[in-house]
Simulated assay, not measured.
Amino acid sequence: MTTPDAAWGLVLKHTRPLARISLPLDGALGHCLAETVRADRDLPPADRSAMDGYAVRAADLRRRPCVLRVIGEVAAGSPARPRVRPGLCARIFTGANVPPGADTVVLVEQTTENDGWVSIRSSARRGANIFQRGEDSRRGAALLRPGTMIGSTETGVCAAVGKAELHVHRRPRVALLCTGAELRAVGDRVAPHELRNSNGPALAAALAQWGFPGASQRQVADRETALRAALRRALRAHDVVLFTGGMSVGKYDLVRAALEAEGAMVRFHGLAMKPAKPTLYATVGAGQHIFGLPGNPLSAMTACHEFALPALRRLAGCAPARCRPALRLPLAAPLRAKPGRVRCVLARVSWDADGPRAHPVESRSSADLVAAGCADGAIIVPADAADLAAGSLVTFRP
């Protein structure tokens, strides 16, 4: 069996970011940059006031008492540039450009204005309460690198430097093929020997939640001819195909045979991991990918989060080191560990005065979808780990 780390290495070896496309800024949310975004001018582009107050010369503040004549005002967005000479000052507001001659801003709370004159009750160092030109970034500086996912803050950065259109990587198109004669639609009445298809909706929701909406879904019978036909159809319009079920070694586990009959190259099948041991990964040609996820819901979701979702992130242009996000958290309770293979243990996260903690969530089997509903993710327990005491640092995958 393949170790999870080796399996992820194989996935990374065969995945490359998809083609570049151009999108308007308001349509790029959730996409990964395929270019460097640079500052088109110094940020801020001029010395600007950080507070409401008066723009003064620091040298004038040495006088006691300090009374200066107000010669005008500058508001944010105003082109006004009253020159501040010795003995003069200008009323100024937050975000306004500092007028020529001034080198300091005194807070309005430290002043009293009367009939065009202002008395200043405190001193200030030269440059106080001023955002200096270029202190955030100089013109031409790289602000966002290729591989950065566009979120709300990144959108703000792009807007600030005039990037109305972005070069990003195309997001992969995904097909979900759920196998099994026992599966029925969510709204169907079911007999004791039947199951409602929970894997399809759950996996589609997981993909959408993590930035890959719109996955197509189809139920497929446990027949090799049906599996092959469904795969051919999916590969015509999708970059990635996710199968659920049919991954083990039983009479009706026919997915691998169908894949190989259609020319797919199996890169691994079987992991030293619990749950999700029967997981499969295959490629077709140079740019299409197939993940065979186990049929049991916990196993399917685990394999999706450990391998399929990270692969989608890589195809979408995410840097390899950011494809499998994880946190290091202290355990809130002891965790029994059986060495031999990697275990993914359901866990929820709580916050208290000492920070976040991971609480193991008990599950009865790899089909225990109810337990998964109580969890925020999984603790990744190494294959060589012994029992872990409360307070031990563990890797938590959301």
Rank of each mutant, 00 (worst) to 15 (best):
A6I: 03
W8A: 09
V11K: 07
R16Q: 13
L18G: 10
I21G: 04
L25H: 00
L25S: 00
D26E: 15
G27W: 09
G27Q: 12
G30F: 05
E35Q: 15
T36W: 07
T36F: 04
V37R: 02
R48C: 14
R48M: 15
S49E: 06
S49M: 04
A58V: 07
A59T: 13
R63E: 10
R64C: 07
P65G: 11
A76D: 05
S78G: 10
R81V: 08
R81E: 15
R85H: 10
C89E: 04
C89N: 00
F93S: 09
N97T: 14
A102P: 02
D103H: 00
E113G: 06
E113S: 03
E113N: 02
D115N: 14
D115I: 14
V118C: 02
S119A: 14
S123H: 12
R125C: 08
G127F: 00
N129V: 00
Q132A: 09
M149F: 10
E154M: 04
T155R: 08
A159C: 08
V161R: 01
K163P: 07
K163S: 13
A164W: 10
A164C: 11
L166I: 11
P172H: 08
P172D: 01
C178V: 15
T179Q: 10
R184T: 13
V186T: 14
V186H: 09
D188W: 10
R189W: 14
R189P: 03
P192L: 12
E194M: 15
L195D: 12
R196I: 14
G200V: 11
A208Q: 15
Q209H: 15
G211S: 06
F212D: 11
A221T: 09
E224P: 10
A229L: 08
R233A: 15
A234T: 12
A234G: 09
L235G: 02
V241K: 13
G250I: 09
G263R: 13
A264R: 06
M265H: 13
F268D: 01
M273L: 15
P275D: 06
P275C: 03
Y281N: 12
A282Q: 11
F291H: 15
P297T: 03
P297N: 04
L298F: 04
S299N: 01
T302K: 01
T302C: 09
A303N: 04
R313G: 06
L315F: 05
A316N: 10
G317K: 07
G317R: 07
P325Y: 09
A326N: 11
R328D: 10
P330T: 01
L331Y: 02
A333I: 01
A333T: 07
A337I: 06
P339T: 04
V349L: 13
V349N: 12
G355A: 05
G355I: 03
A358Y: 01
D368K: 03
L369R: 04
A372N: 11
D376F: 13
I379N: 05
A383Q: 06
D387Y: 08
A390M: 07
L393V: 10
V394L: 04
